[in-house]
Amino acid sequence: MKKFIKKTSVLLVLLLVVTQLVSFFSLYILRQSTFYKPNFLVNGLKRDNYDYVILGASTGLTTLDSKLIDSITNLQGVNLSMDDTNLASHYLMLKHFIAEGKTLKYCIIAPSNMSYNVSQTPLSNNDYRFLMYINRDYVLDHYSHFKSDTAKRLYYSKWFPFLGLSYYNTELFYPSLISAIKPHKRNRFDDLGNYSYPTHKNRMTKVKKKEAIVVSFESDYLKKIKLLCDAYQIKLICYLSPTESQPIDVYSKDYLFINHSNLIKNSDLFYDDIHVNGKGRQVASEAFSKVFMDIVE
């Protein structure tokens, strides 16, 4: 029995050592890369001072084209939105941005429209993209706020990175291999963080227009973002992106918002119910620029 315990222990220790080493190395490579937005922010942004930053989910990523907005407004901005994220992720991204010593004047929040009403924001599916910065307090703090098993796995990755790396092996380990070969590779976004859906529609059936629903900005994390913005004299703008079937009514005295949920009527400008396509993005970005200029002026 002693021999058995000794041998299985050695096997486990060796496994732990090897996987820990590989995981440390993977995260190190990703930290040097521009693969995901948090790495792009650190290694890919050319400037330290921005007029605006767009922080959003897939809607923010695919609706607002910072290149087009820059060309219309003569401002300098970047899109740091990530698909499948929520206001908690945007809060973390803003902290990450500030921690990097960068400054901005306007923070444009563009989550999925209904996120504004979620009072208890969960860990988003793509928050693992901050894992390579687990040694920074604000990232560890972020993971510690959630009770899910996934959040715990990410949290304990500070000491045992193989926990996060094995769980997200296709999302972290393999991208680290790609980044080792191509350090400047970006995961489907351009040099200012933009991405566009193709012009074809993602579904065949026509959607029915629904009754308008009310967004009242009850999100716990929106309050945190507001406080953080206030602390750094950043002006917060809440953006509601166009949807094909779900108009939104907004009532708020506390937040500055741009409600473009009902902006686009033409179904051909949508990729699916809540995402515009390339043409829709142009229309939405132009409309946004106009309103944004009014705010800036």
Binding site: L11, L15, V18, T19, V22, F162, L165, S166, N169, T170
Partner: peptide, 11 residues
């Protein structure tokens, strides 16, 4: 075991 860790489906 190392292959399992880096090629397995856990999520």
């Amino acid at each position: 075991m190392i292959i399992i860790v880096f090629m397995g489906t856990f999520k």
